[in-house]
Nucleic acid binder design. Structure first.
Length: 887
DNA sequence: GGCCGCTGATTTTTT
DNA sequence: ATCAGCGGCC
């Protein structure tokens, strides 16, 4: 009887627990209920990977390994069974007196560690855990990036490996400075072996856990290899002297610590009984080692990844980690998540087609219940302007149908490709933002102030000291700095120590006054830190160092960006303030510096603004958008020129294509261009092999009307699917409509002519055209529609969006094909608007002109659109047609 | 110390 | 085409 009840209870318990995870599919649930031993989850794009991670952690904490077990902690009573049955039937929580009966070996939340690559992913994980488990439990789970986790470990044990607890974290800029100093000391020629290459080589060595000594021992292939090992050793010595770790060291040194100190290792193995690693396909050898050192003897290690999305080989990721996981951890359970919740089947099939051409993979086939959706739209453009124009057409169409700008993402292989789109969108007044580029914390003025702050935290940090000792100018020249460095090196003390006793050194006699002045500033800063709040301290740094005064003087002198810089420093203080608010009592200078060292812009990329997003495919990993434009699908661009000689590199490019395709939820637009201007040369590119790899049944092709016209004339080879005539330079630009989305915008757009004045590439100084917004951490740039770039005269006429007609004669056709003369289509001349005019904009639809402001031969037109509100655009460049004139 | 002009390089990037 | 970095000159 009792056993009978127990059996009943256990069965009900399974039902109950399963119901808690009822929204998962079978595979996902299996992953969640596999609690012990090594687990490999191969999670395809959009397969609910984060959901699985979160649910798996929740299950560990709430039920442990109770699911599927026959175990009970005590005799089961009829009340137990009844209560559980009721809970299941009514869909309510089981009464709390059953708690102990529902969990077996339940894990405490602080025994779980989840590691991700980006702060964004870690933040997302924490947020969802909090939502699922409630604040207290959720916050106790240790979810962080590899680097933050290592910092946390090192802060506690750094002294064990000969570093101070208050170590500094060097970013790539700092690393470069150190390496440059090393080059100088060892008289290495940067021309012979660039600093960048040395840093790269060193980084790879650290990724592979190769120490300076080992690098030196290993017989080098050539002089450069030997040199690299030499500078690596010197660099490492310098960092140790400065009490600093670079990004790679954070991992590398933590591995050293854990390998060499059994007690420390056991401490963590005992603390974190369950380990979860996200994006496992992107881990390096060092990260692999780190994870195995943290994994205790029970081997409760769960890794999640997608070998098909491994795109960081170039920076040290070894796809082998995921490919060999099962071999390394015996008894691994492998679960594939292949159901996709993101995209339509046409998109997924296209993705599957492409990735199938790779050989080094585990093999997965994504499927979905989302329905077929539209076919993948492939557009062959004449050139990059045409490509941009076509994208604007499509977006405009979507907007008319009620879509949002922010639902559109433009993805490309390399950053240079954003320029034509950026320029086109800016001129057309289409709000957009480019993700990537310079980060807020990388700006010079910001880095300078941070450097001041870090030498207060860590007086040994000579690299940062050198950075700011004469910024603003204090008459401490290069010679003096080198003397100080020499003296410091001789005595094994820091440069700041030397400065504080400058009067004791004859060699410094001439520089005593400025040095003491500097020392005085330093002491004032120390005092400020001790007596004031952190944000007041930050503000003091800007003040006391004379930095603000310098910028104000610059501004007075008419330096254009000085005002921006001042604003950035204001933002810096705000950031410090919000750091303080976030951390309350825990806030510290070290903590703040750590945050800024480890947090990037994309983490704070604000998705709320209604703007089209432009970014590289690399940056887009992990994101999704309803409408995705994958541009520049051409041989030599994507796959990139550099990759086409190595099969492994090509496979990585293909994975990148796969990542790009799988970002799209509803519709995917792929484009290639017959000609493209790259690095100042116009090249003809064949369509990408990745395009050809997609079965025709999933795609729908369109070609630029210009190209259609041309082939009707019997001239040029076509692009996609057939051979291109090599060397056939195009100078001809025939009449054209508006691409496939043409919908009667009046004749002005139909015919083309006009010429793109060169000046029009200029007004986008500062990367701040109107309508554009860089995702920058904290930088309060926002808003669009502001039309602040006065620009030169126009003459663009009606040929909007058409390629820039060459000013010089077209490059002669290489293959003996002569280009046709350009037809003399008449330009309609500059466009003029008056308040009250009704206009039609290619993207924003119909609207009424509110204001017109003349600007350097052009007009800035403020228009109230029916659908999208008030926007400003440049009259001659916006895709704008006058419909009626009022009165 | 600051400005001018030349040279060369220019896949991808988080931390 | 564009930009950063460096060397030379005032």
């Amino acid at each position: 009887m009792a056993t009978d009840l127990a059996q009943q209870f256990c069965a009900l318990r399974d039902t109950y627990i399963e119901k808690q995870f009822g929204r998962l599919n079978d595979m996902q649930r299996e992953a969640v209920f596999t609690t012990n031993g090594p687990l490999l989850i191969l999670a395809g794009a959009g397969s609910g990977k984060t959901t699985v991670l979160v649910n798996r952690i929740a299950n560990l904490i709430r039920f442990g390994s109770a699911h599927g077990s026959r175990w009970t902690p005590r005799e089961v009573t009829e009340d137990d069974v009844k209560a559980l049955r009721t809970a299941i039937m009514t869909g309510t929580d089981a009464p709390s007196w059953l708690d102990g009966m529902l969990r077996k070996d339940a894990v405490r939340s602080w025994n779980v560690m989840a590691i991700t690559f980006t702060n964004k992913a870690a933040g997302e994980l924490k947020e969802r855990l909090r939502r699922m488990l409630g604040g207290e439990e959720g916050d106790e789970v240790f979810a962080s990036t590899f680097h933050s986790a290592c910092v946390r470990i090192l802060r506690r044990w750094a002294e064990e490996i000969g570093y101070p607890r208050s170590f500094t974290i060097y970013d790539s800029d700092d690393s470069q400075r150190v390496m440059k100093a090393v080059y100088k000391e060892l008289s290495v020629d940067d021309k012979f072996f660039p600093v960048k290459s040395a840093i790269n080589q060193m980084s790879r060595w650290k990724d592979q856990l190769i120490s300076p000594a080992e690098a030196l021992k290993t017989p080098a292939r050539d002089t450069k290899g030997a040199l690299a090992a030499k500078v690596y050793a010197a660099y490492e010595k310098k960092l140790k002297e400065a009490g600093a770790f670079d990004f790679d060291d954070l991992i590398y040194q933590t591995v050293i610590l854990l390998s060499e100190h059994e007690d420390v290792r056991e401490f963590y193995q005992n603390k974190y009984k369950y380990l979860l690693v996200d994006e496992y396909q992107d881990t390096s050898v060092a990260q692999f080692r780190l994870v195995s050192l943290l994994t205790g003897p029970e081997k409760n290690i769960c890794v999640v990844g997608d070998d098909d999305q491994s795109i960081y080989r170039f920076r040290g990721a070894t796809i082998e980690n995921i490919l060999n996981f099962e071999r390394i951890y015996k008894g691994t359970r492998t679960i594939r998540l292949e159901q996709n919740y993101r995209s339509t089947s046409n998109i997924l099939n296209a993705a599957n087609c492409v990735i199938q051409h790779n050989t080094e993979r585990k093999g997965k086939t994504l499927w979905t219940k989302n329905g077929e959706g539209d076919k993948v739209q492939v557009y062959t453009a004449e050139n990059e302007q045409d490509e941009a124009s076509h994208i604007a057409d499509v977006i405009g169409q979507h907007l008319k149908e009620g879509g949002h700008l922010a639902d559109h993402a433009i993805l490309y292989r390399m950053n240079a490709q954003s320029a034509p789109i950026e320029s086109y969108f800016t001129r057309a007044g289409i709000p957009h933002k480019i993700v990537g580029g310079q980060r807020f914390n990388d700006r010079k003025e910001v880095k300078d102030i941070h450097s001041y702050m870090s030498i207060v935290a860590n007086p040994r940090d000579d690299v940062r000291l050198r950075r700011i000792i004469n910024e603003p100018a204090r008459k401490i020249g290069a010679t003096t700095i080198e003397v100080i460095a020499d003296l410091a090196a001789q005595q094994g003390i820091s440069m700041l120590d030397v400065i504080s006793h400058a009067d004791q050194y004859a060699k410094l006699s001439r520089a005593i006054a400025p040095l003491f002045k500097f020392w005085d500033i330093y002491q004032k800063l120390q005092e400020s830190l001790e007596t004031k709040t952190l944000d007041e301290f930050a503000s003091d740094v800007i003040e006391i160092t004379g930095y603000r005064a310098m910028l104000e003087a610059d501004a007075a002198k008419g330096h254009e960006d000085a005002a921006d810089r001042l604003q950035n420093l204001g933002q810096l203080v705000n950031n410090v303030k919000s750091y303080c608010d976030q951390h309350g009592e825990e806030a510290s200078l070290e903590g703040y510096l750590e945050d800024i060292a480890l947090i990037s812009d994309i983490d704070s990329y604000n998705e709320s603004a209604d703007q089209v997003v432009l970014m590289t495919i690399h940056s887009a990993k992990g994101l999704e958008f309803p409408y995705v434009f994958l541009i520049g699908m051409e041989e030599g661009v994507f796959p990139s020129e550099m990759s086409k000689y190595s099969e492994a590199d090509l496979e990585e490019e293909r994975r990148l294509a796969y990542v790009g395709i799988t970002r799209a939820k509803k519709e995917l637009y792929i484009s290639n261009s017959v000609t493209r201007m790259l690095y100042g040369r116009t090249q003809r590119n064949e369509p990408s092999r990745f395009l050809r790899e997609i079965e025709p049944e999933y795609i729908e092709e369109t070609r630029s009307p210009v190209l259609e016209q041309r082939s009707r004339l019997g001239g040029w080879g076509s692009g996609y699917g057939s051979d291109t005539v090599p060397g056939g330079a195009s100078g001809y630009s025939g009449p054209s409509g508006w691409g496939r989305a043409a919908s009667g915008y009046g004749s002005g757009y139909g015919s083309r002519s006009g010429y793109l004045n060169k000046e029009y590439n200029a007004p986008m100084s500062n990367n701040r055209g109107f309508g554009s917004d860089y995702a920058g951490r904290g930088s309060a740039s926002s808003g669009h529609g502001g039309c602040d770039s006065g620009s030169g005269s126009s003459g663009f006429g009606s040929g909007y969006g058409r390629p820039a007609a060459p000013k010089a004669p077209v490059r002669p056709a290489g293959g003996g094909v002569t280009s046709s003369p350009r037809p003399a289509a008449a330009s309609t001349g500059p466009k003029h608007y008056e308040p009250g005019d009704i206009v039609e904009h290619k993207v924003f639809g119909r609207g009424k002109v509110l204001k017109v402001k003349p600007a350097a031969g052009d007009q800035i037109v403020e228009i109230s659109f029916e659908k999208v509100g008030v926007k400003k655009t440049m009259a001659n460049f916006a895709p704008l047609v006058k419909i009626t004139t009022e009165e």
